[in-house]
Design a protein around this nucleic acid. Sequence first.
DNA 1: CTTGATGAGTTCCTATTTGGAACTTACCAT
DNA 2: ATGGTAAGTTCCAAATAGGAACTCATCAAG
Lengths: 149, 149
Amino acid sequence: MKWQETGEVPCPVARSLSVIGDRWTLLVIRNAFFGMSRFDQFQRNLGVTRHVLTERLNRMVECDILQKVLYQQRPPRYEYQLTDKGRDIYPILMTLTAWGDKWMPLQQGASLFFRHKECGKIFTPILHCSECGEAAGVETVMPVRSESV
Amino acid sequence: MKWQETGEVPCPVARSLSVIGDRWTLLVIRNAFFGMSRFDQFQRNLGVTRHVLTERLNRMVECDILQKVLYQQRPPRYEYQLTDKGRDIYPILMTLTAWGDKWMPLQQGASLFFRHKECGKIFTPILHCSECGEAAGVETVMPVRSESV
DNA sequence: CTTGATGAGTTCCTATTTGGAACTTACCAT
DNA sequence: ATGGTAAGTTCCAAATAGGAACTCATCAAG
């Protein structure tokens, strides 16, 4: 099975991964959340080769995760900004961060935190149930395939 | 930059991705959550080539996401079971699922749901702040690098 | 006892994707 | 006229992936 065939696959995990399931893509998005938007910023910060970066940015624009915005004429220069679809990847980055901090810690401790503006504190993201509001972890959740709903 | 160099990188997102940041790895883990544990089950269900699957399973065992458990002698056969570290990937799969359902829907609707055992309902996972308990989305969260904490 | 099936890989070859470095194009500043 | 900046392109070598066939130990059937 090739990866371009998975965009229309029934599993939403596979569909998500068909777009954001490679390493550089998520790192570009992480940097976009830190305010980066230009080709050379991404390239220098990540160390990704220019031609892989070109391919990834184009794919994200096609998939409507980033949009090109003209920031200068003569010569025309575009920057890449997160769309609503792209901004909605934030929870994925938060859970990835939480997992990395917990299970692949470095001796000098975490290097990325999240501050909740409403209470002002550094926090760990916890998944809750949209229906009852209580925490929903692996022990309290059952995956259900749609055939059997 | 090569990918094997990123395991010790300061960003926890990059460290997470160095292990689970490729397409097949997360699909294998998804299937493990559905109860699969054997080589041929993974191979047939995913359509991944056997030698890529071998490499991925070995890597996950090395990283302590899966563990090999003998389930038969003569000939010795092992199955792959999620460890605590592996089970803790569940929130990542939930957020990936929620994003895929919302932004890459199929005409016939979602094909994977989560049921909260405590309230019995199908739900969408929402990230909350571990400190105050309120919802924490992209608008109410500030990423902070550790240098500036 | 020969054949066939099962499970978990391994091997081999080809095709695609990366990594790395240099080159291009359009402009501005000195 | 020279150098710098930004955003790519191009080229080649190296690594990774896809596909199909092969191996090995063992059990079951005819």
